[in-house]
Design a binder for these strands. Structure first.
Lengths: 166, 166
DNA sequence: TAAAAGTTTCAAAAAATATTGAAAATAATA
DNA sequence: TATTATTTTCAATATTTTTTGAAACTTTTA
């Protein structure tokens, strides 16, 4: 397969995955492009490569920088801004996990903690409380697992643990 | 807090979380409702509780059954179908994880395996191949971790491992 | 087997989300 | 400081996704 075709397939597939996980397709495609490009790219490079508008690139780059997985680079003698992706793949995954936890998981945990304080007078209310409790435990566990596993990947102990639970 | 209010808050929050993770809000709300309701519900019960149309309920129940987390129940002497959710919270999480892996993660892994076969003549192509490789490893690890951790939750060994990596 | 009860399907409408493009803002140079 | 290059913003538009509702279909009962 030629490089250009492989790149295209990768970027499309990354965009499709993102869409299914509630992330803007363009944001993921810009990220994919930066990931597989050794040097930093300008807004115009990205516009051209992905055939999207300047405004779209600008907004999505900002969001990627908010996530902490894309950085602005200054090239001496150049007026334009250049952008590059987090180079360390594991670190990148960690940041994505942390961000999604902070924005989406944590708020739900707050609601769960709240609603389980329902007056447990009826049996129906007891059942409700129980289910919410179970869910809270499960989500907390998943949240912690993601955080810890990603933060420790590369670490020998985690590697062994993962090998064992595999 | 009164039960009705707590239920409403829970259902809304579950729907919002789902939306952010690329799952239809109504599907998640129906699921939430069934999860916290001790007895099975009819299509009309659901329509009333969530204020949505019959067609919407029908389609989303089908999808929930495809995911294996909602079941049809027959009540003797009753003509209507009744529906209830998987009772075991951990089993439910396992099924969701398996389904998302099958539908979304596995196809991406297939693409990654494919595109990394790019002709590695240029340095750019080598860089591309390397990045795709790293990503493949990472996604495979995450996929296996989710699968194994959920399949083993409740099991004493996993509990200890999770406590350690915490 | 005809009528009634219940369910599914899907084209059309509504709602939510993403994208554009041009004006405004900002930054760099002469 | 005026001019030019670059970036950001956001109302308008386009696209995608979800929801409705009524007709078609299926199942049950009389």
């Amino acid at each position: 397969m030629r490089l250009e075709e492989a790149k295209k397939r990768f970027i499309d597939s990354w965009g499709a995955l993102a869409t299914q996980w509630g992330i803007n397709k363009t944001m993921a495609q810009i990220h994919a492009l930066l990931m597989i490009t050794p040097e930093a790219l300008s807004v115009e490079d990205i516009m051209e490569e992905l055939h999207i508008s300047r405004g779209n690139v600008s907004m999505n780059l900002r969001e990627l920088m908010n996530w902490g997985i894309v950085f602005k680079e200054f090239k001496s003698g150049e007026r334009k801004d250049y952008f590059s992706s987090e180079r360390d793949t594991v670190e990148m995954a960690r940041k994505i996990a942390i961000e999604r936890s902070r924005r989406e998981i944590k708020p739900v945990l707050r609601v769960l903690g709240d609603v389980k304080k329902v007056d447990e007078s009826s049996n129906e209310a007891k059942f409700f409380s129980e289910k919410v409790d179970e869910l809270e435990d499960l989500i907390e566990m998943a949240d912690q697992t993601i955080e810890k596993v990603t933060s420790m990947s590369g670490n020998w102990f985690t590697k062994i643990v993962l090998k064992i639970i595999k």
